[in-house]
Amino acid sequence: MAARYGDSLLILGISFASAWVCEGISWLLIYRTSTYKSLRSTIDRTSKKLESMKSNTPTIAATKKSKAKKMDRLEIGLKESSRDLSFSKFKSGGVVAVVLVIVFGLLSSLFEGKAVAKLPFVPLNLVQTLSHRGVPGDDPTDCSMVFLYTLCSLSIRSNLQKFLGFSPPRGAAAAGMFPVPLDTKGK
């Protein structure tokens, strides 16, 4: 096995290490702080309560109205705490970004102008701007370090966060990003 593309393993290893470093920093700055933990538990609790309230709908009109009001309050509470949650993440965002830029600088100095892997498919032109960046020749299946590093960090970091339990709770993600106008009239 000529392992012409042995460098790709080096990139994999460096991405793996940098993912752990980034999560370590985030843990140090955010995840172990009590504010984050309390925010996280309120979000989990409210989204669970909302979920259970949504599943059993009362019949009598009066309770329906009061229930809708209660759900409103819960929704607003959920939105606020998920917004605070994302603000609390900004603190470590800066440090993590610095780490990623340093690692990227190191990798590009090592592998500039070199194909580090072979793609088993011909990517779309749009993808080629990334997968063929800085690689000599015009063979579209040559893979640049940038593309491989992007794939590594995307897959490794998201799974590492999931594995460590740092990924944002589902309830918050939905409420925080796309504030759906709540139909409060309640037909």
Partner: peptide, 20 residues
Amino acid sequence: FASFTLFLLAWILVYSLLHF
């Protein structure tokens, strides 16, 4: 999305390392 990037990464790496 995470599984798609993981799939691509595994496919490319195994393909590049085993067959070149």
